[in-house]
Simulated scan of single mutants.
Amino acid sequence: MKRRDLLQGAAALTATGTLACAPAWAQGSDYPRPDATIRYVVPFPPGGLTDVMARQIGQQLGEHWKVSVVVDNKPGGNGQIGADLVAKAAPDGNTLLAITLTHAANVTLFPKSPFSFQKDLRPVALLAGSPMLIVVPEASPIRTLKDLMEQSRMRQLNAGSSGNGTPPHLTLALFNDLNKSSIQHVPYKGGAPSMTDLIGGQLDVIFSNFPESIPHVKGGKLRALAIASKARYPSLPEVPTTAEAGMPELQVENWTGMMAPAGMPEAAVRKLGAEVLKIVSASDFEARARQQGFVVDARGPDRFAAFLTEEIARWARVIQTANIQPS
């Protein structure tokens, strides 16, 4: 056989093999492969909200699909380091990213990012949200959200957060904008030290991540003025929502979701999204999540994409109005 014929025959075999594999991959039926190890990147330290949810999802996903799912913490850069890693990973569905409200804000905070959040990553599923809780020291004369609204217009107050551009900071900025007040922002390196100073009376208020403050509220060291959600929270039934307390526009949840590299095939994304939604919608999972401070908000790729677009625009306005700069 001539060399040209051999080359044509090899090309035909290659094309045939590719086509033979294509229907299964296109339908998502061979994802994930049985020998796969799925790397679920959490761009924050272990033990936080995002990490806790990711580990539960990873464990259940591994059990359901009989594959290995490894949670890999890659903290740094306000969540940008881990996101960059996944944005540049192979789009085979074996590298996934856990994101939060922080990443929607990062689109505005980091305009010169080495990757494009909206072009290089694609939504898989929204998992859950954790409402922000507005807390003051137990000894504070501020008893209600309306007290806070009035006092912050009359005198200088300060509010701690876990850092510039974090959800507590963004919620404070939104409050200041809505209330036409100027509570001073005091950034800390993490939520725990800011809580310590609030309990000690060095701070006036924190617009807090729910799980960080609820033990201190239940322990009598902090007073919860309102919860920034649509409904009261079962474990704090006496705490009004921000709407009930006089500021209906102040609704903020520090949500978490799953993303994948942009080139991951549509069918595989939908198969993964459907499986994740099945996991988080199970009654035992929802009950456990609620105990940890989450409210399950299960949305697949399309609804999550629309939600992300809204969140990016919402926080862009707040960041620009408050002139927030990253740390």
Rank of each mutant, 00 (worst) to 15 (best):
K2A: 13
R4D: 14
D5G: 07
A11Q: 13
T14W: 15
T14G: 15
T16L: 15
G17L: 13
A20Y: 10
C21Q: 11
P23K: 10
A26G: 14
G28R: 09
P32V: 00
P34E: 01
Y40R: 09
V42N: 09
P45N: 05
P45Q: 05
V52I: 12
R55G: 06
Q56C: 04
I57W: 08
Q59N: 13
L61V: 07
H64W: 09
S68A: 11
S68W: 01
V69L: 01
V70C: 07
G76D: 03
G76W: 08
N78M: 13
A83R: 01
A87Y: 09
A90C: 11
P91G: 00
T95L: 04
I99D: 09
T102C: 09
T102W: 09
T108H: 06
T108M: 08
L109I: 11
P111Q: 08
K112V: 14
S116W: 12
K119Q: 15
K119H: 14
L127T: 01
G129F: 08
I142K: 04
T144L: 06
D147C: 02
L174C: 03
D177V: 10
L178Q: 15
L178K: 12
S182E: 08
Q184L: 07
P187F: 03
K189W: 03
A192Q: 05
L198S: 00
Q202G: 04
Q202L: 09
Q202S: 12
I206R: 00
S208C: 05
E212W: 07
G220R: 02
I227Q: 00
K230R: 14
A231G: 13
L236Y: 06
T241Y: 12
P248N: 09
P248G: 07
E249N: 11
G257S: 10
A268K: 03
V269I: 13
R270L: 12
A274D: 13
E275C: 12
A282F: 00
D284G: 03
F285N: 00
E286Y: 06
Q292R: 13
V295F: 08
D297R: 15
A298F: 07
R299E: 11
R303T: 13
F307S: 06
E311V: 04
I312D: 04
A313I: 03
N323F: 01
I324E: 04
